[in-house]
Design a protein around this nucleic acid. Structure first.
Lengths: 245, 245
DNA sequence: CGCCCATTTGAGTTTAATCAAAAAACGTGG
DNA sequence: CCACGTTTTTTGATTAAACTCAAATGGGCG
C-alpha cells in the first residue's frame, strides 16, 4: 500500500477516497532489491517511475576516479521523477541502502491517473517541486554550511520527511545510513563525519546508535543546523487549491 | 521572441511551425528589471512562470547571518519551474545580474499551451528534467570537486548552455558574473575564486576579461573539470519521440 | 570463534578561509 | 575627456577547517 505516499501528499492537499484508490492502483508491478545493490544504473534507459514502498535508497553520481556524491535519499513514500521516461539515459544511479521494495509504475498508468484525478495530479506536482527544493537546499548545504551544520541539517530534513510519512516514533526513527554514506551525502570524509557526530552526541543534540536515531530536542538541532523547514512546503499548502473539490 | 528557448528545445525534439508560434504566443506580458534588483523574493507568492528573454539572473538562498549561496543561473531562453504556482510561497529569491527582460506567463496560458501542443509539452518536461539534473550536478560539484574543478565545471556548463541557445560566438561568450557571484555559486570565497581563476588563466584554460569569456580549447577545460555533459541531455534526445510528428 | 564491515582515534598535512589593504576598472557628471 | 567615487579585482600574511594516512577498536553474524 502506498500509505506513506498518501500520508505525505495529504500534507499538501486533501484527497478523496477515489483519489486514494487511484494511488493504490499504481502498485501493480512490485520488485525487491537487496541492500547494497543498484536499483538503476547510470546510462540505463528509464522505463518507469519508481515508487518506494519499503526500505531506504539514494541517488548518487560517481567520477571515474572513485569520488562519489550522494545527491538524494529515498525513503518509503518517495517517488522518482515523474517524467523520467522523457530522457533517453539516466545521468546517475540509484542504490539500495537496505532491502528495498518498490512499485514500478509504467508511464501509461501514470498518465491515465493524471488525466482522471486532477487533485492527485496537483499533489504530484507539489511532490516534484518539493524534490527540486530539496535539491537546492542540498546545494546550499554543501556550499555554505559548516560540517556540523551540514550533518545536523541533513538529519533534520530526514527526520521531518519521515515524520510526514508516518515513519517516526516520537522523537526517534530508523536510520540505516552508514557514516561513509553520510560523508558521501555531505561532501565530507567519513573520518570527519565521525568526529562531527561525536560532537553532536556529546552536546546532546542526537542519540545515534544501532541504526536508530533519536533527536531529544528537534528545535535545538534545527537551531544548530540553521534549519528552516519552509523548503519542504508541508503545512497544508494546497488548502487554497481545495476549492474545486 | 523566445528564439533562445526554441533553439534550446530543438536540441531535444523537432518543433513544428505551429509549435513555435504557440511558444511565441507565451510572450504577452513583458517586464524589465534593473541589474542588482530582485525579480522575486523569498516568501512571495508565485503568480506566473517566468521566461527569460534577455539578461542574466540567479536563484539564491540566504541565511540570516549573511551567508549566501547561488543555486542556479538563468540565461536567455531559460524558464522557471513549470508548476511553481502550486506552491504557496517562494523558498528562495531570484536576482538580476544584468538588466533583465522576461515574459511573465500566466498559468492558464501555459496549461492551454500544453493541452494543445503535446510535443511542446514533452519538450518542456525535458527542460524541467534537465534543470533538476543540473541541480544534482551542482550538488556533486560542491561536494566532491576541488576549487579549480568546480569553477572549470561551472564555466563549461554555462558555455555549453549558452551555445545551445545560440548565445556564443565561436569560443567566446558574454560573461557578466562577478567573482563574488562566482564564489557564491561555487561555495568558495571571492579571494579563492580570484586565485583559482588566475591559475586557470596562466595555464591557458580560459581568457576572462571585461565580462567576456573565451575558452580556447573547450575539451581541455572539460578535462580539467572532469566535465561529463551527459546530464544536460542535449544531442537530440527526443528523436525517438518524433514519430508522431 | 573468527571474519567482515563500520566506527573510532591519533598525528600530520593541505586546502581554502580570514583579515587587511592596494590596485585596477567602471560609470557618471562636470 | 578628465576627475572622482564606487565596485571589482588582486595580492600578501596568517589561521582554521577539513583531509589524509594509518591503525586500533567494536559489533554483528554465520
Amino acid at each position: 500500500m502506498p500509505q506513506h505516499l498518501i500520508n505525505k501528499l495529504e500534507h499538501f492537499t486533501r484527497l478523496s477516497e477515489a483519489d486514494k484508490d487511484a494511488l493504490k492502483g499504481l502498485i501493480r508491478r512490485v520488485r525487491l532489491f537487496e541492500a547494497g545493490t543498484d536499483i538503476i544504473r547510470e546510462g540505463e534507459r528509464p522505463e518507469h517511475v519508481n515508487l518506494f514502498l519499503a526500505g531506504w535508497a539514494y541517488r548518487y553520481k560517481q567520477l571515474e576516479d572513485g569520488r562519489r556524491q550522494i545527491v538524494a535519499f529515498f525513503v518509503p513514500g518517495d517517488l522518482c521523477d515523474l517524467h523520467v521516461f522523457v530522457l533517453r539515459e539516466m545521468d546517475h544511479a540509484i542504490g539500495a541502502i537496505t532491502p528495498v521494495r518498490l512499485a514500478q509504475v509504467p508511464r501509461e498508468m501514470l498518465i491515465g491517473l493524471m488525466d482522471r484525478h486532477p487533485r492527485v495530479t496537483r499533489a504530484l506536482w507539489w511532490e516534484t517541486l518539493v524534490d527540486a527544493a530539496i535539491q537546492r537546499e542540498w546545494t546550499f548545504n554543501l556550499g555554505r554550511r559548516t560540517a556540523l551544520e551540514r550533518l545536523a541539517h541533513l538529519l533534520c530534513e530526514l527526520f521531518i520527511r519521515l515524520r510526514a510519512t508516518g515513519l517516526t516514533d516520537g522523537d526517534s526513527c530508523a536510520f540505516p545510513v552508514t557514516q561513509v554514506e553520510l560523508a558521501d551525502a555531505t561532501g565530507l570524509t567519513n573520518v570527519h563525519v565521525n568526529r562531527t557526530l561525536r560532537e553532536m552526541r556529546t552536546s546532546g543534540l542526537i542519540v545515534l546508535k544501532g541504526r536508530q536515531l533519536t533527536i531529544p530536542h528537534l528545535a535545538a538541532l534545527q537551531k544548530a543546523a540553521l534549519f528552516n523547514p519552509n523548503y519542504l512546503h508541508l503545512d497544508h499548502e494546497g488548502a487554497h487549491l481545495n476549492a474545486n473539490a
